[in-house]
Amino acid sequence: MKIAVLVKEVPDAAVEKRIDPSTGRLDRAGEKNLNPYDQNAIEAAVQLKEGGAVPVEEIVAITMGPEGAERALHKAVSLGADRSVQLTDDAVAGSDVVATGYALAKLIERESPDLVLLGQQSDDGESYAIGAVVGEFLGFPALTQVSKFDVSGSTITAERQAEYGYDTVEVDLPAVISVSDAINEPRYPSLKAIMGAKKKPLEKVTIADAGIEADKVGAAGSKIECGNFTEPPKKAAGEIIEDEDTAATVEKIVAWLDERKLI
């Protein structure tokens, strides 16, 4: 089987995120990294390959993003992808969720994978939606928040937690599965894998290469405009205690509780 894993480069968790007032989009300057949730997706692919229940011939990492986003692909390859594909084209800048999902679906079509894996959310976009959008464009069944799955023949049996408890769902391949962050513990790449990552094939494609219609992507092809950013009413900042001397810390906690008649 062939697996495509969707990965995205996002601002590093340690970077203070802000909106660029001139564009109304996220300011993407500063340190960036592979979206942490995508590591769960790569790990799931690698475990499938190592597990041997089904033969996995290839794991392809796919991203849509600016030139620099190839770093996310290098990371993905160091974590176990065999090669990668990057759609980098000015025409896709400013794409909304549906436009992004459409473009990604076009990239996936070129690869004809049996399984598409992705993370539960992007750390910056947080739409939780790309998986379902991609599935819709491809005509593949899509499941999100999958915390466990098994492949048997051309069927995937997946478990996930929904509103009322755990659901078990079966889908026929090819399918799109977005994994929850509870599905596995992503490994650290070995030094050798990090060194070797840049030597693995990385294909850069334009919208023309992927047969993406220009009027369906980018800011112009998007159906949504975000703006009028306002600050929500702030909850008064809580008191903070750095625990240096635990006996003193708990004494302060007890006094705090006592003051509020909580004890």
């Binding site: 549906v98 379902a132 819709e136 999100t144 998007s222 949504i224």
Partner: peptide, 22 residues
């Protein structure tokens, strides 16, 4: 909820709508 996200995303793609989560 989980299904709301999945259905909403699928619907937006099918009818060509803009989508906002949360």
């Amino acid at each position: 909820g989980l299904l709301g996200f999945e259905i909403g995303a699928g619907l937006a793609a099918r009818v060509g709508a803009g989508i906002t989560a949360e």
